[in-house]
Design a protein around this nucleic acid. Sequence first.
DNA 1: CAATGAAACGATAATGGATTTCATTGCTGT
DNA 2: ACAGCAATGAAATCCATTATCGTTTCATTG
Lengths: 129, 129
Amino acid sequence: MTGAPTRWGRMLEEAGIRTTSQRLLVLDGLGRHRLPVSAQQIHAELHEQGERVGLTTVYRTLTSLAAAGLVHTFTQAGEIVYRLCGPAKHHHLICRSCGLVIERVEEEAMAGFRAEEVYGTCATCAGTS
Amino acid sequence: MTGAPTRWGRMLEEAGIRTTSQRLLVLDGLGRHRLPVSAQQIHAELHEQGERVGLTTVYRTLTSLAAAGLVHTFTQAGEIVYRLCGPAKHHHLICRSCGLVIERVEEEAMAGFRAEEVYGTCATCAGTS
DNA sequence: CAATGAAACGATAATGGATTTCATTGCTGT
DNA sequence: ACAGCAATGAAATCCATTATCGTTTCATTG
Protein backbone atom coordinates (compact mmCIF):
# COMPACT_ATOMS: atom_id res chain seq x y z
CA MET A 1 0.00 0.00 0.00
CA THR A 2 3.06 2.24 -0.39
CA GLY A 3 4.04 4.18 -3.48
CA ALA A 4 2.20 6.86 -5.40
CA PRO A 5 -1.08 7.52 -3.57
CA THR A 6 -4.02 7.79 -5.88
CA ARG A 7 -6.84 10.28 -5.56
CA TRP A 8 -8.64 8.01 -3.10
CA GLY A 9 -5.49 7.23 -1.20
CA ARG A 10 -4.88 10.91 -0.69
CA MET A 11 -8.42 11.44 0.54
CA LEU A 12 -8.11 8.71 3.13
CA GLU A 13 -4.69 9.92 4.21
CA GLU A 14 -5.89 13.46 4.74
CA ALA A 15 -8.85 12.18 6.72
CA GLY A 16 -6.59 10.14 8.96
CA ILE A 17 -8.05 6.85 7.79
CA ARG A 18 -5.62 4.04 7.05
CA THR A 19 -5.53 3.11 3.40
CA THR A 20 -6.56 -0.45 2.63
CA SER A 21 -7.43 -2.11 -0.63
CA GLN A 22 -11.02 -2.61 0.51
CA ARG A 23 -11.48 1.04 1.39
CA LEU A 24 -10.07 2.07 -1.96
CA LEU A 25 -12.54 -0.23 -3.65
CA VAL A 26 -15.46 1.25 -1.72
CA LEU A 27 -14.35 4.77 -2.57
CA ASP A 28 -13.98 3.74 -6.18
CA GLY A 29 -17.47 2.31 -6.14
CA LEU A 30 -18.85 5.48 -4.62
CA GLY A 31 -17.00 7.64 -7.12
CA ARG A 32 -18.77 6.04 -10.02
CA HIS A 33 -22.11 7.43 -8.92
CA ARG A 34 -23.44 10.93 -9.00
CA LEU A 35 -26.56 9.94 -7.17
CA PRO A 36 -26.47 8.55 -3.65
CA VAL A 37 -26.10 4.77 -3.42
CA SER A 38 -26.69 2.25 -0.68
CA ALA A 39 -24.06 0.11 0.98
CA GLN A 40 -25.74 -2.98 -0.40
CA GLN A 41 -25.59 -1.61 -3.90
CA ILE A 42 -21.89 -0.82 -3.66
CA HIS A 43 -21.26 -4.26 -2.25
CA ALA A 44 -23.20 -5.89 -5.06
CA GLU A 45 -21.38 -3.91 -7.73
CA LEU A 46 -17.99 -4.77 -6.29
CA HIS A 47 -19.00 -8.39 -6.16
CA GLU A 48 -20.15 -8.31 -9.78
CA GLN A 49 -16.84 -6.91 -10.85
CA GLY A 50 -15.12 -9.82 -9.10
CA GLU A 51 -13.88 -7.98 -6.03
CA ARG A 52 -14.29 -9.66 -2.66
CA VAL A 53 -15.18 -7.12 -0.03
CA GLY A 54 -17.37 -8.09 2.87
CA LEU A 55 -20.67 -6.31 3.33
CA THR A 56 -19.67 -5.51 6.89
CA THR A 57 -16.56 -3.77 5.66
CA VAL A 58 -18.54 -1.73 3.15
CA TYR A 59 -20.82 -0.55 5.94
CA ARG A 60 -17.89 0.21 8.24
CA THR A 61 -16.00 2.07 5.57
CA LEU A 62 -18.95 4.20 4.59
CA THR A 63 -19.65 5.00 8.22
CA SER A 64 -16.11 6.20 8.87
CA LEU A 65 -16.04 8.14 5.61
CA ALA A 66 -19.22 9.85 6.71
CA ALA A 67 -17.78 10.57 10.14
CA ALA A 68 -14.76 12.13 8.43
CA GLY A 69 -17.06 14.31 6.34
CA LEU A 70 -15.96 12.87 3.02
CA VAL A 71 -19.40 11.50 2.22
CA HIS A 72 -22.86 12.61 3.18
CA THR A 73 -25.68 10.31 4.06
CA PHE A 74 -29.35 10.53 3.23
CA THR A 75 -32.33 8.30 3.74
CA GLN A 76 -34.28 7.02 0.78
CA ALA A 77 -37.11 4.53 1.01
CA GLY A 78 -36.03 3.30 4.39
CA GLU A 79 -32.40 2.78 3.57
CA ILE A 80 -29.27 4.82 4.07
CA VAL A 81 -27.61 6.08 0.91
CA TYR A 82 -24.20 7.65 0.57
CA ARG A 83 -22.67 10.22 -1.71
CA LEU A 84 -19.17 11.62 -2.13
CA CYS A 85 -19.24 15.34 -1.44
CA GLY A 86 -16.99 18.28 -2.05
CA PRO A 87 -14.96 19.69 0.82
CA ALA A 88 -16.66 23.09 0.88
CA LYS A 89 -19.31 23.67 3.52
CA HIS A 90 -22.63 23.23 1.84
CA HIS A 91 -26.11 21.88 2.21
CA HIS A 92 -28.12 19.73 -0.14
CA LEU A 93 -31.19 19.90 -2.30
CA ILE A 94 -32.40 16.38 -2.93
CA CYS A 95 -35.09 15.60 -5.48
CA ARG A 96 -37.53 12.98 -4.23
CA SER A 97 -38.51 12.16 -7.78
CA CYS A 98 -35.23 11.58 -9.62
CA GLY A 99 -32.77 11.47 -6.75
CA LEU A 100 -30.72 14.37 -8.04
CA VAL A 101 -28.53 16.00 -5.41
CA ILE A 102 -27.50 19.62 -5.70
CA GLU A 103 -24.76 20.99 -3.46
CA ARG A 104 -25.49 24.51 -2.38
CA VAL A 105 -22.77 26.69 -0.91
CA GLU A 106 -24.85 29.75 -0.13
CA GLU A 107 -26.33 30.05 3.29
CA GLU A 108 -30.09 30.12 3.14
CA ALA A 109 -31.38 30.82 6.58
CA MET A 110 -35.18 30.81 6.68
CA ALA A 111 -36.50 32.57 9.74
CA GLY A 112 -33.41 31.70 11.73
CA PHE A 113 -33.60 28.10 10.60
CA ARG A 114 -30.33 26.77 9.21
CA ALA A 115 -31.06 24.36 6.38
CA GLU A 116 -28.85 21.30 5.96
CA GLU A 117 -30.93 19.06 3.75
CA VAL A 118 -33.83 20.09 1.59
CA TYR A 119 -36.06 17.39 0.12
CA GLY A 120 -38.41 18.32 -2.64
CA THR A 121 -38.81 18.35 -6.39
CA CYS A 122 -36.23 19.64 -8.81
CA ALA A 123 -37.09 22.04 -11.62
CA THR A 124 -36.93 19.31 -14.25
CA CYS A 125 -39.22 16.91 -12.43
CA ALA A 126 -41.64 19.69 -11.51
CA GLY A 127 -41.92 20.62 -15.15
CA THR A 128 -41.24 24.16 -14.01
CA SER A 129 -38.24 24.46 -16.23
CA MET B 1 -70.36 4.51 15.36
CA THR B 2 -73.40 6.64 14.65
CA GLY B 3 -74.34 9.82 16.47
CA ALA B 4 -72.43 13.07 16.91
CA PRO B 5 -69.12 12.73 15.05
CA THR B 6 -66.19 14.05 17.03
CA ARG B 7 -63.34 16.09 15.63
CA TRP B 8 -61.54 12.88 14.61
CA GLY B 9 -64.65 11.32 13.23
CA ARG B 10 -65.20 14.32 11.02
CA MET B 11 -61.63 14.18 9.78
CA LEU B 12 -61.93 10.55 8.79
CA GLU B 13 -65.30 11.11 7.18
CA GLU B 14 -64.03 13.97 5.04
CA ALA B 15 -61.06 11.89 4.00
CA GLY B 16 -63.30 9.04 2.93
CA ILE B 17 -61.93 6.69 5.58
CA ARG B 18 -64.44 4.63 7.47
CA THR B 19 -64.60 5.50 11.14
CA THR B 20 -63.69 2.74 13.55
CA SER B 21 -62.89 2.83 17.23
CA GLN B 22 -59.29 1.83 16.58
CA ARG B 23 -58.75 4.59 14.07
CA LEU B 24 -60.18 7.11 16.46
CA LEU B 25 -57.79 5.89 19.12
CA VAL B 26 -54.82 6.25 16.79
CA LEU B 27 -55.88 9.75 15.82
CA ASP B 28 -56.34 10.60 19.47
CA GLY B 29 -52.88 9.30 20.24
CA LEU B 30 -51.42 11.34 17.40
CA GLY B 31 -53.26 14.45 18.49
CA ARG B 32 -51.56 14.44 21.85
CA HIS B 33 -48.18 15.09 20.27
CA ARG B 34 -46.78 18.21 18.71
CA LEU B 35 -43.62 16.43 17.64
CA PRO B 36 -43.71 13.51 15.23
CA VAL B 37 -44.14 10.10 16.85
CA SER B 38 -43.55 6.56 15.66
CA ALA B 39 -46.21 3.91 15.18
CA GLN B 40 -44.60 1.85 17.90
CA GLN B 41 -44.79 4.74 20.33
CA ILE B 42 -48.46 5.34 19.66
CA HIS B 43 -49.12 1.65 20.04
CA ALA B 44 -47.26 1.56 23.36
CA GLU B 45 -49.10 4.58 24.70
CA LEU B 46 -52.48 3.15 23.76
CA HIS B 47 -51.53 -0.10 25.41
CA GLU B 48 -50.45 1.71 28.58
CA GLN B 49 -53.78 3.44 28.76
CA GLY B 50 -55.49 0.08 28.55
CA GLU B 51 -56.63 0.23 24.95
CA ARG B 52 -56.23 -2.85 22.81
CA VAL B 53 -55.21 -1.90 19.32
CA GLY B 54 -52.96 -4.15 17.29
CA LEU B 55 -49.64 -2.80 16.12
CA THR B 56 -50.56 -3.80 12.59
CA THR B 57 -53.66 -1.66 12.76
CA VAL B 58 -51.69 1.30 14.03
CA TYR B 59 -49.35 0.99 11.06
CA ARG B 60 -52.20 0.58 8.61
CA THR B 61 -54.13 3.49 10.02
CA LEU B 62 -51.15 5.83 9.94
CA THR B 63 -50.37 4.78 6.39
CA SER B 64 -53.86 5.54 5.15
CA LEU B 65 -53.99 8.79 7.06
CA ALA B 66 -50.75 9.75 5.36
CA ALA B 67 -52.14 8.75 1.98
CA ALA B 68 -55.14 10.97 2.65
CA GLY B 69 -52.84 13.86 3.50
CA LEU B 70 -54.03 14.19 7.09
CA VAL B 71 -50.64 13.34 8.53
CA HIS B 72 -47.16 13.81 7.21
CA THR B 73 -44.35 11.34 7.61
CA PHE B 74 -40.70 11.89 8.30
CA THR B 75 -37.75 9.67 8.97
CA GLN B 76 -35.86 9.96 12.21
CA ALA B 77 -33.02 7.65 13.17
CA GLY B 78 -34.13 4.96 10.79
CA GLU B 79 -37.76 4.91 11.74
CA ILE B 80 -40.86 6.49 10.31
CA VAL B 81 -42.53 9.12 12.43
CA TYR B 82 -45.93 10.71 11.90
CA ARG B 83 -47.44 14.08 12.64
CA LEU B 84 -50.93 15.54 12.26
CA CYS B 85 -50.80 18.46 9.88
CA GLY B 86 -53.04 21.34 8.96
CA PRO B 87 -55.03 21.19 5.73
CA ALA B 88 -53.28 24.14 4.08
CA LYS B 89 -50.59 23.34 1.54
CA HIS B 90 -47.30 23.75 3.27
CA HIS B 91 -43.84 22.37 3.66
CA HIS B 92 -41.86 21.59 6.78
CA LEU B 93 -38.81 22.78 8.60
CA ILE B 94 -37.62 19.97 10.88
CA CYS B 95 -34.95 20.54 13.50
CA ARG B 96 -32.53 17.63 13.71
CA SER B 97 -31.60 18.64 17.21
CA CYS B 98 -34.87 19.04 19.07
CA GLY B 99 -37.34 17.55 16.62
CA LEU B 100 -39.37 20.72 16.30
CA VAL B 101 -41.53 20.88 13.19
CA ILE B 102 -42.53 24.19 11.67
CA GLU B 103 -45.23 24.33 9.02
CA ARG B 104 -44.46 26.89 6.36
CA VAL B 105 -47.14 28.08 4.03
CA GLU B 106 -45.08 30.40 1.85
CA GLU B 107 -43.61 29.00 -1.27
CA GLU B 108 -39.84 29.13 -1.18
CA ALA B 109 -38.56 27.98 -4.50
CA MET B 110 -34.78 27.89 -4.59
CA ALA B 111 -33.42 27.91 -8.10
CA GLY B 112 -36.56 26.22 -9.39
CA PHE B 113 -36.38 23.62 -6.66
CA ARG B 114 -39.65 23.15 -4.79
CA ALA B 115 -38.91 22.44 -1.13
CA GLU B 116 -41.11 19.98 0.72
CA GLU B 117 -39.06 19.08 3.75
CA VAL B 118 -36.16 21.01 5.13
CA TYR B 119 -33.95 19.35 7.73
CA GLY B 120 -31.60 21.52 9.72
CA THR B 121 -31.22 23.36 12.97
CA CYS B 122 -33.81 25.70 14.44
CA ALA B 123 -32.94 29.15 15.74
CA THR B 124 -33.14 28.06 19.35
CA CYS B 125 -30.87 25.06 18.95
CA ALA B 126 -28.42 27.01 16.82
CA GLY B 127 -28.17 29.63 19.55
CA THR B 128 -28.85 32.12 16.79
CA SER B 129 -31.85 33.51 18.57
C1' DC C 1 13.80 -11.38 8.87
C1' DA C 2 10.88 -13.32 12.62
C1' DA C 3 8.02 -11.74 16.49
C1' DT C 4 4.45 -8.79 18.26
C1' DG C 5 0.35 -6.17 18.95
C1' DA C 6 -3.06 -3.32 17.03
C1' DA C 7 -6.16 -2.48 13.43
C1' DA C 8 -8.98 -4.27 9.85
C1' DC C 9 -11.57 -7.88 7.78
C1' DG C 10 -15.58 -10.84 6.94
C1' DA C 11 -18.80 -14.88 7.67
C1' DT C 12 -22.48 -15.47 10.54
C1' DA C 13 -25.87 -14.44 13.91
C1' DA C 14 -28.73 -11.17 16.03
C1' DT C 15 -31.60 -7.03 16.05
C1' DG C 16 -35.52 -4.33 15.11
C1' DG C 17 -38.74 -1.67 12.32
C1' DA C 18 -42.02 -2.52 8.90
C1' DT C 19 -44.92 -5.49 6.04
C1' DT C 20 -47.47 -9.65 4.69
C1' DT C 21 -50.44 -13.48 5.64
C1' DC C 22 -54.58 -15.34 6.92
C1' DA C 23 -58.19 -16.66 9.93
C1' DT C 24 -61.54 -14.17 12.56
C1' DT C 25 -64.57 -10.38 13.66
C1' DG C 26 -67.73 -6.81 12.76
C1' DC C 27 -70.13 -3.44 9.73
C1' DT C 28 -73.42 -2.34 5.99
C1' DG C 29 -76.89 -2.57 2.87
C1' DT C 30 -80.62 -5.44 1.15
C1' DA D 1 -81.63 -12.30 9.23
C1' DC D 2 -78.09 -12.73 5.87
C1' DA D 3 -74.62 -12.25 2.30
C1' DG D 4 -70.61 -9.77 1.22
C1' DC D 5 -66.93 -7.03 2.16
C1' DA D 6 -63.87 -4.27 5.07
C1' DA D 7 -61.20 -4.24 9.15
C1' DT D 8 -58.64 -6.38 12.70
C1' DG D 9 -54.63 -8.54 14.89
C1' DA D 10 -51.44 -12.40 16.08
C1' DA D 11 -47.90 -14.55 13.98
C1' DA D 12 -44.71 -15.13 10.34
C1' DT D 13 -41.73 -12.88 7.27
C1' DC D 14 -38.79 -9.48 5.20
C1' DC D 15 -34.76 -6.77 5.00
C1' DA D 16 -31.37 -3.23 6.17
C1' DT D 17 -28.22 -2.67 9.61
C1' DT D 18 -25.35 -3.90 13.61
C1' DA D 19 -22.90 -7.00 16.82
C1' DT D 20 -19.94 -10.95 17.51
C1' DC D 21 -15.73 -13.11 17.19
C1' DG D 22 -12.17 -15.76 15.09
C1' DT D 23 -8.87 -14.79 11.32
C1' DT D 24 -5.88 -11.95 8.54
C1' DT D 25 -3.11 -7.98 7.45
C1' DC D 26 0.08 -4.43 8.51
C1' DA D 27 3.52 -1.52 10.67
C1' DT D 28 6.91 -1.68 14.14
C1' DT D 29 10.46 -3.54 16.98
C1' DG D 30 14.26 -6.49 18.26
